[in-house]
Amino acid sequence: MRLSSKDWQTLTFATLALAAAACLPFLTAGYWLTIGVTIAMYTVLSTSWALFSGPTHYISLATAAFFGVGAYVVGYGIEHLPYWSLLVIAGVIGAVMAALVGLTTLRLSGVYFVIFTLGLAEFIRQVITWVQNWTGQKGIYVLTSITEAHIYWQLVGLAALVFLTGWLIGRSRLGFALRIIGDDEEVARHSGIRTARAKILLFMVPGAVGAITGAILAPRYVYIEPILAFTPMLSFQVVIMALLGGTGRLWGPIVGVIPFTLLWEAISASFPNQTTLLLGLSFLVIVYLLPRGFVGLIDDIRARAGREALA
């Protein structure tokens, strides 16, 4: 693989940015670190979501399903296996799950996929509950010495992996195939691209990443219960943040995640009794004013600057 000087620039910049982000716990152990964990978590989830949904235009609402499975892997395994191995297991299970879901649904057209993924979190929650009910399982506790800073670093590390994966996919034959599929699936199929295989392979990325994120966050929850681990809100937030940022670029979701998290925090802090209402209003404003997300806005500004420079 040969890298151009622009590639080197991008890589250097990304490495510096991640290194800078990793320094946060040294600056603050408090409030901003907690916000940092939220931002890092949604960055990982939204970016991996956009890797699949950006090029294919399939809206996946399965994030909560993968996340919950990851949390339960740690919940069940923490007393038997070392923590690090659980992250790997969670990733594998998430990827396999995504592959199975992909095999059954990705041959269908978009809307069926959306409905199926929305139901998936609920389905898995019911399966886990059924197993617990059958075995008379007691509450699941994850008692570890893992701190907020550890969780944050793990998430930043995972973010680095996600960005690297995205960057590599973008340069690969798979990435090229996906762009064609996104433009016109019919054309892609006629060009000899195995569209279903490409989509399934790509869908395994958010599957694995979602599960690993759930596994990383499990020690923060301490007590794992289905209602909290499989909350459907998570799936929607990830989609909203990714779309706010824009899915056209690898760095798109992150420019959605940061302002959205801060906006949410500001609303929660200032209007604790009207969070849902104000959030809804913000969505309306975002949809009307920023239909292509922040990425679209930035592109527009650049284009205008370019024109002015020419004139």
Binding site: Y31, T34, I35, T38, R220, L228, T231, E265, A269, T275
Partner: peptide, 22 residues
């Protein structure tokens, strides 16, 4: 000072941080 955690553990943690630090 009251905060709504939206039945979300992440928000509970964030709100406790906010209460103490901010």
């Amino acid at each position: 000072v009251e905060y709504d955690d939206q039945t979300n553990p992440g928000q509970t943690i964030q709100a406790v941080q906010r209460l103490v630090n901010q």
